[in-house]
Amino acid sequence: MKLIDCPRDAMQGWPTLIPTSQKIAYLNALLQVGFDTLDFGSFVSPKAIPQLADTAEVLNGLAVDASATKLLAIVANVRGAETAAQYPQIRYIGFPLSVSETFQQRNTNKSIAQALDDVARMQELCARTGQEQVVYLSMGFGNPYNDPWSPEILGEFTQKLDALDVRIVALSDTVGASIPETIAPPFRELTAAFPHIEFGAHLHTTPATWREKVQAAYAAGCRRFDGALGGYGGCPMAADHLTGNMPTERLIEFALGVGETLPLDLAALGKAQELNEALFASH
Rank of each mutant, 00 (worst) to 15 (best):
L3H: 07
P7R: 02
M11C: 12
W14G: 01
I18E: 02
Q22W: 06
K23T: 12
I24C: 02
L31P: 00
T37V: 15
T37G: 00
D39K: 05
F40R: 03
S42C: 15
F43N: 00
F43G: 00
A53E: 10
T55N: 06
E57Q: 09
G61I: 14
L71I: 01
A73R: 05
V78C: 07
A81S: 07
E82P: 09
T83A: 15
Q89Y: 08
R91L: 01
R91E: 04
F95T: 05
P96W: 00
P96F: 00
S100G: 15
T102H: 09
Q104G: 13
N107G: 06
S111C: 09
I112W: 10
L116Q: 14
D117S: 13
D117H: 12
A120G: 02
T129W: 10
Q131R: 14
Q131A: 14
E132M: 14
Y136M: 06
Y136L: 05
L137V: 14
P148A: 15
P148N: 12
I153C: 10
L154A: 02
T158P: 04
L164V: 07
V166E: 03
V175R: 02
P180I: 03
R188K: 12
L190P: 10
A192N: 14
A193P: 12
A193Y: 08
G200S: 14
H204W: 07
T205Y: 01
T206N: 09
G221T: 07
G227I: 04
G231S: 13
M246V: 04
P247S: 03
E253S: 14
E253G: 14
A255T: 13
G259D: 09
P263G: 06
L264C: 06
G270H: 11
G270M: 05
Q273V: 05
L275R: 09
L275E: 09
L279C: 09
F280G: 08
S282F: 08
S282M: 07
H283A: 09
